[in-house]
């Protein structure tokens, strides 16, 4: 991963286990995150890709403090915030914000848009009512939301408009770091483009850092600087975007990329039919987590667990088959 002192967020060996009931008398562990380490540079966009259930949202929620991890460390601007609840985090929390996937669920239906946007200011700042109104209006300008609609309720807006409101709420406290959890996947394509542009504009204007969680490879291709590919709660490949798309190394990354229906690549590879499905995070495979689906697997992969190793300075991969590069 990248060097330098510009690291804004550092995650070290983060693990999260959920205890779930499998029957009346039995409880099992669901391994949502397994020793995740990642560093995020200021002003960059790191995309987290993977299929449903791979733990990408859990990682985002753990970073902003909605889940307490079981082990590991989260350092934000070199301060350990791992086991602090959002309340204990105090001022730090306002620097870390989240945009959620579904704008129909993330806005309180009983609050006016103005109240939704004003509340964070009331909690975290000492601004007077007048200053708060000014700040809300200024933020609306930034996200392209018409100020005259501030007295309406969320249900009066379309999905795209709601996502603008959610973005406004996330940026109103001038955060440094935003976890964007699938911010465009609930939107239509034409609206998706508008919101992606908005997010990129805001990043430039407010020098924001994004952790961009998505399952959509084409979105990743477009907006990220670095890409982390997750599989069953682990990072299996991490690289600069350019390098990853030119030269994906991990077999899972290859399968994932080749499965994306694309108008420039209108024939899907039939070998995908053999690719199988994601294993359950409850009974993790013994060796490499991807081995049961992997076309290259051998005995070693089924017994031992590969480490995340550096292939080049900016490219890490977790696979036994790659080391001789």
């Amino acid at each position: 991963m990248s060097q330098g002192n510009n690291i804004i967020l550092k995650v070290e060996n983060l693990s999260k286990i959920f205890k779930i009931k499998t029957s009346l008398f039995e409880r099992k562990n669901l391994y949502a995150l397994n020793n995740i380490s990642i560093e995020i540079e200021k002003g960059k966009t790191v995309a987290l890709v993977g299929e449903s259930g791979c733990g990408k949202t859990t990682l985002g929620k753990t970073i902003i403090g909605l889940y307490t991890p079981d082990s590991g460390k989260i350092l934000f601007k070199n301060r350990d915030i791992t086991f602090l609840s959002p309340q204990q985090r105090g001022k730090i929390q306002k620097d870390i914000q989240m945009i959620f996937q579904d704008p129909y669920a993330s806005l309180n239906p009983r609050k006016k848009i103005f109240t939704i946007l004003e509340t964070p200011l009331k909690i975290f700042t000492n601004l007077s009512k007048k200053e708060r109104i000014k700040k809300v209006e200024e933020t609306c300008g930034n996200v392209g939301f018409d100020v005259s609609y501030l007295n309406r309720y969320p249900h009066q807006f379309s999905g795209g408009q709601r996502q603008r409101i959610a973005i406004a709420r996330a940026i109103i406290l001038n955060p440094l770091f935003i976890v964007a959890d699938e911010p465009v996947s609930a939107l239509d394509v034409s609206i998706q483009a508008q919101i992606l542009n908005l997010l990129m504009d805001l990043q430039e204007k407010l020098s924001l850092t994004y952790l961009f969680i998505t399952h959509d490879i084409s979105v990743v291709k477009h907006i990220s600087d670095y890409v982390a590919v997750m599989y069953l709660g682990e990072i299996v490949e991490y690289s600069l975007k350019r390098e990853l798309f030119k030269n994906p190394l991990h077999p899972y990354t290859k399968i994932l990329f080749s499965a994306v229906p694309d108008i420039e690549n209108p024939v899907l590879n039939e070998s995908l039919l053999k690719a199988g499905e994601v294993s359950s995070p409850i009974d993790l495979p013994k060796g490499c987590f991807f081995a049961p689906r992997c076309p290259l697997k051998d005995d070693k992969c089924l017994k031992e667990k590969p480490e995340l190793i550096n292939v080049t300075e900016n490219h890490k991969v977790r696979c036994f088959k790659i080391k001789n590069l």
Partner: peptide
């Protein structure tokens, strides 16, 4: 998911 989607489409 995408990999499953690809399988279903094929």
């Amino acid at each position: 998911d995408v990999t499953i989607q690809a399988q279903i489409l094929i």
